[in-house]
Design a protein around this nucleic acid. Structure first.
Length: 621
RNA sequence: GCCUCGGUAGCUCAGCUGGUCCAGAGCGAUUGACUUGUAAUCAAUAGGUCGCGUGUUCGAAUCACGCCCGGGGCUCCA
């Protein structure tokens, strides 16, 4: 609704001639005049049709607010189509106008000019600062609250713990001795309690290590990544990409924005509990993807697939997926509005193949997390399913628990509220006892139908596949969050925090003692390879060593007269050191090269994203 | 969206019962000295419309109101 509000000495109108859509009025209502009145010119718009009642109350409120301010006792409601290019139907407009008249009549003397007539009017504007105002009323900015978000509130969950023997115990009766993290995770999931007394440690770390930072020039939860952060992300992305390829996935790429009015997508939006970013281009309303599902399913819809191609896996690293998470949820990089999500979808022939594939992806996810540096002890397992699915597949579920060799949290629903019948997640529990999901796989029994995805079986018949959604690692940013939080926890326990060597931005730091050692230092950089840099700043050796420690550099090499003479290196190995006593070792360049090679074998590698000489580096924070 | 805390030098912050300890400290930067052997070398210099606006006052970084931006919390989390 568009409003043009004018505080007038008087307003006078006379209806001259009806248009096609004129409302019927008696002769008396064709003329009107109000003295000392607030005159509201009103255009009712297309999207007001969604919720006329709300528009009436909001419009009436805006008008009475201003009437209050300018001390007007009389209000003229004057339909004025020219305020908007996008008008509602006449019926809605009349309904809303009448509704506003009724609402305002309680406190004001209200007159309404007839709708749909050519009218002559005379208006005398008072001309004080508040005498001419316009207002646009848009309800909720056209926000879509998905059915899934609503049904989530209705879903009744049964919370259990499944032990290694396959027995399910109510979560509140389980003996959590020896499973403290599972207990914290369970509490977190059930009670949703999350009072926190401090900022999580990764927030300071991500900035101090010059990896990630807030970007005030963007929307909250959209971060900037400095070279070291970009490097770490890139390495993690490449690792997951490799693992997906190993699993037999085909990498694809799909658009990041989609048409809101696309019939299939529209329905899917309602099944996904997330808020979208919406943008408008030309006359189209678009939303930014919150996962790669749409793109891959739309692709799947157009594909010709034989049973021989099954299971068929498509993979994409979505940079970015967007979810407009609530403002207060965004802390550091634990939860973001723009995040990088490895997203794989698998088409399987039937539930049997789907379950087999589910188990494989479950095991693959464990392996991926292990590769990035997170062990089974670092996260807790949740398995969620419908009651029906459980009753038909008890042994299968028990098998999943058996694989991780520890009790897991179970959530069971009476009915299927969502598009899946079975899912698991691996949840990282941080030092503040907050849990966040990393890897996840879901068995989707709904979207093959919705997107009309089919394959042809041995008999030449079209069949609906069962779909799997899988993120083998979870969002890349969240993996970084988990690694930083894990390091922070270890630091609290008196260990030296660090990233795995293959992920460390600087793998080896060379510190020449004096200027005359720089030539040798540069030689070593060349011979060694890896991401090796050299601290050639005009600082003391002590200062340089301290700085290398603050950067979590795994291998620190000091080169002075002795090393220059002997050709041996003095290496401080961070992994073996403690805060009080550095672990120093004498080794040759070749020894060190071999050690790092074996430590980073099979992992992605990228070159140093910064100048080799520290003296040439900018500071980002 | 709501509650709450905050915005002072490139960074982290002190000052904030209004007036010469009010424009400061540490780090960083620059320059000079030192050429250094395992966790912060010494000295000098430069840097700020104290988020923006309005008001109160003889006088505002300091008080009031409004606005903008950010942190944390709530709501939410297939």
């Amino acid at each position: 609704m568009q409003l043009l509000l004018i505080h007038s000495d008087y307003i006078e109108f006379e209806a001259k001639r009806p248009t096609k859509m004129a409302e019927e009025i008696d002769d008396q209502a064709r003329k009107g005049r109000l003295e000392e009145a607030l005159c509201a010119f009103i255009a009712v718009e297309k999207f007001d049709e969604d919720d006329p009642e709300a528009v009436i109350s909001e419009g009436a409120k805006q008008i009475s607010d201003l009437a209050e301010q300018v001390h007007a006792d009389r209000i003229m409601l004057y339909p004025y189509a020219h305020l908007s290019p996008n008008l509602s139907t006449p019926a809605t407009a009349v309904k809303i106008l009448k509704g506003m008249q009724e609402a305002l009549s309680r406190n004001y003397e209200v007159m309404r000019a007839p709708f749909g007539w050519y009218k002559a009017f005379t208006l005398s504007c008072k001309g004080h600062p508040l005498s001419e105002l316009s207002r646009s009323i848009k309800l909720g900015e056209g926000e879509v609250v998905s059915e899934a978000l609503k049904s989530e509130a209705k879903a009744v969950s049964y919370w259990k713990i499944m032990d290694l023997d396959g027995k399910m115990v109510d979560a509140d009766k389980f003996d959590f001795t020896g499973h403290e993290k599972l207990k914290k995770f369970t509490n977190y999931e059930i009670s949703k309690a999350r009072a926190v007394d401090r900022v999580p440690p990764h927030v300071e770390l991500m900035r101090r290590l010059e990896m990630v930072d807030y970007e005030p020039g963007s929307d909250p939860g959209n971060m900037r990544y400095y070279p070291k952060g970009r490097l770490v992300k890139s390495l993690l992305e490449n690792l997951v990409l490799d693992k997906a390829a190993e699993m037999g996935a085909m990498e694809v790429e799909t658009p990041i924005m989609y048409d809101m009015e696309h019939p299939t997508l529209k329905k899917y939006l309602d099944r996904f509990p997330a808020r979208q970013y919406q943008i408008e281009a030309d006359k189209k309303k678009l939303f930014l993807r919150f996962a790669a599902c749409f793109g891959q399913f739309l692709m799947g819809h157009d594909m010709t697939i034989s049973y021989k191609a099954m299971p068929l896996r498509m993979f994409e690293i979505t940079r970015y997926s967007f979810r407009r998470e609530q403002r207060g949820e965004l802390v550091g990089i634990r939860r973001l509005r723009a995040f990088t999500m490895p997203d794989m979808h698998t088409l399987t022939r039937d539930m049997g193949q789907a379950m087999e594939e589910f188990r494989k992806q479950y095991e693959a996810s464990i392996a991926v997390l292990k590769d990035v540096g997170l062990d089974l002890g670092d996260y807790e397992v949740a398995i969620r399913f419908t009651k029906d699915f459980y009753n038909e597949n008890k042994q299968f579920i028990e098998g999943l628990v058996d694989i991780v060799q520890k009790p897991v949290l179970i959530e069971m629903w009476d009915d299927r509220f969502f598009y899946f019948v079975l899912k698991f997640e691996f949840n990282f529990v941080d030092t503040l006892d907050k849990a966040s999901a990393l890897s996840t796989v879901q068995i989707d029994v709904e979207n093959a139908e919705r997107y009309d995805i089919a394959y042809v079986d041995e008999a030449g018949e079209k069949q609906r596949p069962i779909l799997l959604h899988c993120s083998p690692s979870g969002a890349i940013e969240r993996v970084i969050y988990a690694l930083l939080e894990k390091a922070a926890r270890e630091a609290e326990q008196g260990k030296l925090p660090m990233l795995p060597t293959w992920l460390s931005p600087t793998q080896v730091r060379i510190i020449p003692v004096a200027e005359r050692h720089q030539a040798r230092a540069l030689e070593v950089v060349k011979e060694l390879g890896f991401r090796t840099d050299i601290d050639d700043r005009d600082e003391t050796v002590s200062k340089k060593i301290r700085d290398a420690g603050r950067e979590w550099v795994p291998y620190v090499v000091v080169i002075g007269d002795d090393e220059q003479a002997s050709g041996q290196l003095t290496v401080t190995v961070r992994a073996n050191s403690t805060p009080k006593s550095p672990a120093k070792a004498k080794m040759s360049v070749e020894d060190l090269r071999r050690q790092i090679s074996s430590e980073t074998a099979g992992k992605p590698w990228r070159r140093l994203p910064l100048p080799v000489r520290l003296s040439e580096r900018p500071r980002f924070i």
